[in-house]
């Protein structure tokens, strides 16, 4: 194992780092909100493991809603109901009997706005392992360091681990949040417009990070930015009004889309 693989090994539950991250199978997923009965309609997607899948589409088309289905964050919203199935490594995510907490430890999530907790940098990253029952300091130190290294933040913060996370720049905060998600050793990483509140340089760093991480995680990223989708993703799904219009390899979508609507959206002719 080289250094990189060791890091990944330390940051995933898989004993063999070369083992591929699991894929996700979405079948007939529909979702309604009280005010929005067609938030998602009959979504079918087969998301391969160990790759980056981008979800694009106009504002309000249901991208975030779809993403929140993968870790059942929609459960927290009142009056939200869904049907269909999402299979992650043999587990039916949407089954009411599914242990949501365990699921969320397998499916990490990064939000649009960096949301570090009001505590020190160290505590932010150690948070997930801690609530998972890890108590020993040495163990925590290891997890924190490897997660931060993997999120390419270690060198910048290793001397200020006890400072409040709020002092970091927005770009650093976002990488910290990614490190925080990694620290619980998930299999899937969901990212909802992770770079939309960042400056171009920080955005670039996040994109590099995504590229690095895809070896070990299945990544689903929502983005508004066409170039970004083209740069980081292997496959792209175009959503409109709660439906999947087109889902294919990123090359195909961006060079030769099958649907007219996709082309219009990508070329900016949309609405």
């Amino acid at each position: 194992m080289d250094h990189r693989e060791a890091l990944i090994a330390a940051s995933t539950n898989r004993s063999n780092p070369s083992e591929a991250a699991p894929g996700i199978e979405v079948k007939g997923l529909s979702l309604t909100y009280p005010e929005e009965p067609n938030a998602l309609t009959d979504i079918n997607l087969s998301i391969p493991g160990g790759e980056v899948t981008a979800v694009i589409g106009p504002s309000g088309c249901g991208k975030s809603t779809l993403l929140r289905c993968f870790n059942r964050m929609n459960d927290m919203l009142e009056g939200c109901s869904y049907s269909g199935s999402i299979i992650l490594n043999g587990l039916d995510v949407l089954d009411p009997a599914t242990d949501v907490t365990a699921l969320r430890r397998r499916v990490g999530m990064v939000f649009q706005q960096p949301n570090p907790f009001p505590m020190s940098i160290y505590e932010n990253v150690a948070y997930g392992p801690r609530i998972g029952g890890v108590r020993r300091r040495r163990e925590l130190d290891e997890v924190v360091e490897s997660a931060l290294r993997l999120a390419a933040l270690w060198d910048e913060v290793k001397d200020q681990m006890n400072r409040n996370a709020i002092v970091l720049s927005l770009g650093q905060q976002q990488r910290l949040v990614i490190a925080r998600a990694i620290a619980v050793r998930p299999e899937v990483l969901l990212m909802d417009e992770p770079a939309s509140s960042l400056d171009p340089i920080s955005t670039l760093r996040i994109e590099e990070l995504i590229y690095e991480l895809k070896q070990s995680y299945t990544i689903v990223i929502v983005t508004h930015n066409m170039q970004q989708a083209a740069r980081v993703s292997d496959r792209t799904a175009f959503l409109n009004q709660g439906r999947v219009v087109e889902y294919d390899s990123t090359d195909k979508i961006f060079t030769n889309p099958a649907e007219r609507a996709t082309e219009d959206y990508i070329t900016g002719r949309y609405g």
Binding site: N13, S15, G133, V134
Partner: peptide, 21 residues
């Protein structure tokens, strides 16, 4: 390694039950 994992799973389980209560 897998024993490690086993132990960890167990500790997560018990912590979680406590947290939920």
């Amino acid at each position: 390694m897998s024993g490690d994992l086993q132990r960890m799973r167990y500790s997560i389980e018990s912590v979680r039950a406590r947290e939920e209560k």
